[in-house]
Design a protein around this nucleic acid. Structure first.
Lengths: 261, 261
DNA sequence: CGCCTTCTTGAGATGACTCAATGGTGGTGG
DNA sequence: CCACCACCATTGAGTCATCTCAAGAAGGCG
């Protein structure tokens, strides 16, 4: 499957009644910290739960899309592409993340979203979100917080992409994802003492880091041989976290903290 | 001057009474689109105008800083650094831009800010901003909009940094800045038919694009020889905008639009 | 006028890329 | 249960874009 290509353009939508089951995630994503009395009226707004199968495209760069999403479960990637197919993955979204929010609700999406694993999402009409933001300063402030958080994360990614070499980039990304997944605890199942479930292909890693697939492969081999990190059968093993941190130079505390915002 | 180094750590502060003179910029930056009756109480909050000389450091990555800023005039850069000095410039701020907003008001700054030219800024205590956001959904929504705008811009930068070659990167950055400056009209003085005032050194360009200074220099020569773009005596000349757009593959309409948000 | 920063150019080194081919693995259907 | 297929991972060899090191030229400022 070409990530930069067309893929499955349609969102597989199994519409389910309004009630959201993953309350923990929902609270965290959109309504965290907002007083209950400000939340009641959210019931009058339409929101729907969707199931996106692995490899589904949620929305595409340049196209109109009327919804924003809260990710309940699964991994989703956001990307931008150039006309010749070169694709940059901007971020990997994990449960609790908010997708599709833009400065201007009516303009086309600035990036594409693609479900890496089967995912559950809660869709919210942008028009409603906009109205709700004018009514609740709590919700508007929440959106600002989430945007600022994603911003900080993206800045770290830019530092990696612009300044680090292949080994540093890879260690940064893998350590970041490892920390985020662990910070989310049981929202992302399958973690154990020193490893997490890890559904990303080497192609995705390469498109996230601005490297070729071959370089990713060779660099992963290096990290494995040095007993630092290993990816095996869709799991990421943290073999030596101290060494990984020394190479990556990222602040795992603030990453963990931000994952929980 | 080493950009990654320590430089002038102190902000030169010429405190001026509350009244802001650059009303056009102020409205655009923080309070645009917010009804006047929601704005009256802003008067009770402290805000001060500052003058930062060229090369002043406004705040530093990793340190506490109690203010956010609206940039009135001048160019400011935001950057992140690695421990060995490698520095990535994250964005160039122009008049109307908002600096220093973070998800968590109490955590240390996630990046450094540095005045490229002499700049005027309006400082706002973070604590006040936070209080104001809970009181005014308009202001909170405005913050969300600004954060989303910066986000979209940063995503384009990441696409450049990760996927484009030196020539494409340089064309993208120069064209973007050219369009943003022109979109701001008289807020950034000195533009004429086909050129703008351009205070960035080649070192800054290199740190923004993840290239070496030498490569920037050679690539600039190429663009000059091909009659596409030229930097000469602190001005950027747009010699062939169509060619520049073809190389850069950026959407100048949305850039201009976002510059005015 | 002299100093310091910034720009410019050359030559050689190298990290990462490309092209090409092989090997593994998981899912599907006979 | 096995054979096949598609996708993904792996490895080698050669190339190239960009980096590094080194030196000199050009500007701006006190």
């Amino acid at each position: 499957m070409k990530l930069g290509g067309n893929g499955n353009q349609l969102i597989a939508t199994t519409s389910i009644p309004t009630k959201c089951v993953h309350c923990a995630v929902r609270a965290r994503a959109l309504f965290q910290g907002i007083p209950p009395d400000q939340l009641e009226w959210t019931q009058q707004y339409r929101e729907n739960q969707y199931r996106a199968p692995a490899r589904a495209r949620l929305f595409s760069e340049g196209q109109q899309h009327p919804y924003v999403y809260t990710l309940y479960s699964g991994w989703v990637l956001l990307s931008n592409s150039l006309s010749d197919g070169r694709t940059q993955i901007l971020r990997f979204a994990l449960p609790g993340d908010f997708l599709g929010f833009q400065a201007n609700a009516t303009s086309p999406m600035s990036s594409s979203a693609y479900a890496i694993t089967e995912s559950m999402l809660c869709a919210f009409p942008k028009a409603d979100l906009q109205r709700m933001m004018t009514e609740s300063s709590g919700l508007a402030a929440r959106m600002a917080t989430l945007a600022a958080r994603d911003m900080a994360q993206l800045q770290q990614v830019l530092l990696s992409t612009g300044q680090k070499n292949a080994r540093e980039k890879l260690a940064s990304l893998l350590l970041e994802l490892y920390v985020r997944v662990r910070a989310l605890g049981n929202l992302v199942p399958g973690s154990d003492e020193h490893s997490i479930v890890f559904p990303l292909s080497q192609e995705m890693l390469s498109q996230s880091l601005g490297l070729s697939v071959e370089t990713v492969n060779r660099t992963l081999r290096g990290l494995r041989e040095d007993q630092i990190l290993e990816i095996r059968s869709k799991r990421l093993y943290m073999l030596d976290q101290n060494k990984a941190m020394a190479i990556a130079e990222i602040d795992i505390n603030s990453i963990a903290e931000q994952a929980l915002l």
